[in-house]
Amino acid sequence: MAAKTAAGTIEPKKGLRAFISKNTNLVTFVSLAILLGLLTRGRSFEWPSVRNLMIAESVRAFAALGVGMIIITRGIDLSIGYVVCLVASVAASFAQTSDYTAALYAGRDFPLWLPFLAGIITGGLFGLLNGVLVAYGRLPAFIATLGTMSVARGFQLIYTKAAVVGSLKDSYKTISQGSLGPIPNLALYVAAACVVIWVLLRHTKRGTNFYAIGGNAMAARVSGINVERETVAVYTYAGILYGIAGCLLAGRLGLANALTANGMELDAIAAVTVGGVSQTGGVGTMSGMVIGVLTLGIINYGMTYLGVDSYYQLLVKGFIIIAAVYFDMKKYARRS
């Protein structure tokens, strides 16, 4: 198409190209949304569908924001799925109805804030542990979080005795399942978290430090940044976000068990990578992470809507991740 255009109109094209190249993730998202809109004859643009998408992706968004920050510092976290699973189980155990005889604390009625406190502390502690292992133990993040993943799974099975933690109080479930007017509560929480993360990354010294460490840890250290302390901080923040994710997920499902959130690390890491957070460290934005989550969400939603076989869905997901990382690597290899 460009070849057919008269010489005089090349200038704005360049502008468009520059825009596309700068905002690949946004352009991908919008194109996929339009494609899905066409394939579903406009149904995917209707409010119930948009609402479903928001509900479906909210919990993942928390996990993605957490691991996104870690990847900015050039780390990785594989423990997400089982940490969220453990948190959901802990939170659920404090939110069971008191007349449920099979409850973990049968006959006890806890205040509504306790499951959240317990869940967020659990998540935060695992984040702290990950951070300490990576920063002070000098373990590769890949191995450290692989280990804590197994630890979290073990704790979950021991704590719940492998049973389903169900029969949660309606008041607890409403926190996740309710809505403010037409907008689901979950989306509001994500929005709030986004604001916090945006401020943290863009307007605090700590945020700047994260980018500096990811860009070049050695240089960051030389310039006076306490790399260890900041590394512990980023993993702990991520752990707190997983904590919130687990609490909300338990409320959304009305239960937690050993299979809850399994594999969420893959979804979260894939989402932020698609959203332009570079595996080479030092690159990524809050908005990119959210766009990444929504992009994978729209692909999931589209494939479900069109009835694509789940085995093929796995293939598609895998290819998307590989492609996203490939282009990411290519982009930054060129730059360096």
């Binding site: 479906a56 299979l259 479900t304 809507y305």
Partner: peptide
């Protein structure tokens, strides 16, 4: 028949149910 596999994930199954209902 609109057949969907949740791959053992209850959250996915809920999403799939909501999607089919909107259809």
């Amino acid at each position: 028949l609109k057949l969907l596999d949740s791959r053992s994930d209850q959250a996915t199954q809920l999403d799939q149910l909501n999607t089919l209902i909107t259809q």
